[in-house]
Nucleic acid binder design. Structure first.
Length: 628
DNA sequence: GTAGGGTTAG
């Protein structure tokens, strides 16, 4: 069995032993290089560097076939000091002019963020074979977010008549992943078509990713549909694109389509699908994905386990989430954050904070996102002092930047505790610009504590930042309404009319026997419509006591989607009625009291998951729950 | 025998 065919991992210790004596020094060099290549090819970069050092210790001399792999390892690990040392060895051994070595040097310097050194190597490149050197530096600029330099270098290439190829494009396109740079990206796309490089699958994938990252999901889908071939990466790019842009149901559709075409998903695919299941609360699809993970042997993939914890937490299956958490041998800050979030969003603030403290004890350093999860856990559970303590520790002990996402949690925390003035002071003391979520949290607190004056102030700020967010208008209108200020209600309505803002229809859904049943207000499209309305009528009569309503009084737009969902659940004897509400504001007061009354009359417990409350989360969705 | 490149979680 040659070393090329030997399984790598089990024999690592043997590979690190000194090289067997070879008949000639050149033959010994080949043996070292072969091993180095194997390790680098399998992503074993630390081992590759160890092997390089060992080679030097054993008196082996590196050559032009050694350096590319050793440099690649430094690049992958971002190790600049060994990288610079290697550069010294390159010069000493006279391998400097070798194009393979030069491009590896440029890449190494770029990945270590030493652009100046990369440029120096580039400027000294001998004429001829310039394309690869240009490619290396262009992609290096893109890697370091130097958009203008990358584009300028490409222009220079064209002016000097240096030929370019699809690899040039693969380096250049990632420079255009900001919406501001999209126009350049689109001209690159034209250029790609003009030169016939669009038949390259990798180039297509790269363009697809560019559109996705610029938020142009429509362009991305058009490109996807026009591509002659779809590789696994193509499917993944499109699926993760939908997931990143919050189009969770498109993710599920595309995933089904992918499977129906016989393409096997990999962990990258499944991570996106799970994150979308979490957004949708689509527990049954999530469970199916978990089976798929086990069948495919991806069970120990940490990315997938984190995604599973997140999915089960958001779907309300905390025990399951905890079991996966406990079984994970290595827990990163992401793992801890997922489980803390899970307990936090279900009002179990005590457990969430305990977990947070356990995390620190276990030596995992919290990051900004971990603090968001613990702060919001404190705010939901009313742990005001504890939350303020974390907020302090975040800055004092961990020197983490406190962003608007943290401030909005603390404003919420103070606001719910009735400390409106303190919340307002906190906002005024902010060194970063407060965003809509921060003012929105204050506005929400004003609703709870009926403070019209402060609400007006918060509203003024929030509509400046998010003029299109209808939720805030409705919130203020409700505050006025509760205060009996009808003039105020009218003023808000006029404002909405003038700005041509119309409330999007809210929708609610219930999962029944693995299927999602979706309702919009006044919906009559469900196959069981007649029975649902009859049940709703019955429930309305029950909670209204002796008032017997006429059938037509509960028909049309006044029938909220939550009510239809609950009537459907009761009608079908759904044991755990969990209604997920997606709209621009929290569950309305009318439905709130309706569900509460039904719960009381029937002596049953319901969970309403309101997917759009005024909490700032990175994905814009917060899964707070209310129980009745 | 070698370089320059495309998809991933809270």
């Amino acid at each position: 069995m040659t070393s090329k065919h030997r399984p790598l991992y089990g024999h690592l210790h043997r590979q690190l032993l000194p090289a067997p004596p070879a008949s000639t020094p050149a033959a010994a060099g080949v043996t070292w290089n072969t091993r180095l290549r194997e390790l680098s090819k399998h992503g074993q970069f630390s081992e590759a560097l160890a092997l390089y050092r060992q080679m030097l210790r054993c008196g082996g001399s590196p050559n032009a076939f050694t350096f590319p792999f050793a440099l690649k390892s430094c690049a992958a690990l971002s190790l600049s000091i060994p990288g610079v040392q290697l550069h010294g060895h390159v010069i000493k051994t006279g391998c400097g002019p070798e194009p393979f070595v030069l491009t590896s040097l440029i890449t190494m310097y770029c990945q270590c963020n030493l652009i100046g050194s990369a440029r120096k190597v580039f400027d000294e490149c001998p004429q001829g074979n310039l394309t690869v050197c240009y490619n290396a530096l262009t992609s290096g600029y893109a890697f370091n977010s130097r958009f203008l330099d990358a584009v300028a270098l490409f222009c220079q290439m064209r002016e000097l008549g240096v030929s370019f190829n699809s690899v040039t494009m693969l380096g250049l396109i990632p420079a255009c992943t900001l919406p501001a740079h999209l126009s350049v990206g689109m001209s690159l796309h034209s250029c790609i078509i003009k030169f016939g490089l669009d038949t390259d699958l990798s180039v297509g994938n790269c363009l697809l990713t560019m559109y996705v990252k610029c938020g142009c999901i429509k362009f991305a889908k058009t490109l996807f549909d026009s591509m002659p071939k779809h590789g696994l990466i193509t499917w993944n790019a499109m699926i993760s694109g939908y997931a990143q842009n919050g189009l969770a149901s498109n993710v599920v559709d595309l995933y089904q389509q992918m499977k129906s075409q016989g393409i096997h998903p990999d962990p990258v695919t499944l991570v996106s699908v799970l994150s979308s299941c979490a957004h949708l609360g689509a527990h049954s699809i999530g469970r199916e994905v978990e089976r798929q993970i086990e069948l495919s042997g991806f069970g120990s993939n940490p990315f997938l386990n984190n995604a599973l914890i997140n999915m089960y937490s958001r779907c309300g299956k905390l025990a399951k989430a905890l079991a996966i958490f406990n079984a994970m041998p290595e827990k990163t800050v992401v793992t801890w954050t997922a489980i803390i979030n899970g307990y936090g969003m279900h009002g179990q603030g005590e457990i969430a904070t305990q977990l947070f403290d356990d995390m620190i004890r276990s030596g995992v350093r919290p990051d900004g996102a971990a603090f968001v999860s613990v702060l919001s856990a404190c705010s939901h559970a009313g742990l005001t002092d504890k939350g303020l303590e974390y907020f302090e520790v975040m800055k004092e002990k961990y020197s983490l930047r406190r962003g608007p996402e943290h401030y909005s949690c603390v404003v919420d925390l103070l606001g719910r505790a009735g400390k409106l003035a303190e919340a307002f002071d906190l906002i005024r003391s902010m060194k970063v610009e407060p965003d809509g979520a921060v003012w929105g949290a204050l506005l929400g607190a004003c609703k709870i504590h009926k403070n019209v004056e402060l609400a007006e102030l918060a509203f003024k700020r929030v509509v400046k930042l998010e003029p299109e967010n209808i939720g805030y208008y409705v919130l203020l209108s409700n505050i006025y309404n509760e205060a009996g200020n009808l003039e105020g209600v009218l003023r808000v309505r006029v404002m909405m009319r003038d700005r041509k803002l119309r409330k999007e229809p809210g929708y609610s859904y219930v999962e029944h026997r693995g299927e999602v049943h979706l309702f919009i207000a006044g919906d009559r499209s469900h196959p069981q419509t007649e029975e649902i309305y009859r049940m709703l009528h019955k429930l309305e009569s029950l909670v209204e006591g002796l008032h017997d309503l006429k059938e037509n009084e509960i028909s049309g737009m006044s029938v909220h989607s939550e009510k239809l969902a609950i009537a459907f659940g009761i009608l079908n004897s759904e044991p755990n009625i969990e209604i997920v509400v997606i709209k621009n504001l929290r569950v309305c007061g009318d439905c709130h009291s309706f569900i509460k009354s039904v719960s009381k009359v029937l002596d049953r417990r319901f969970v309403v998951r309101d997917a759009t409350r005024f909490h700032h989360f990175s994905n814009g969705i917060c899964s707070c729950r209310d129980y009745w």
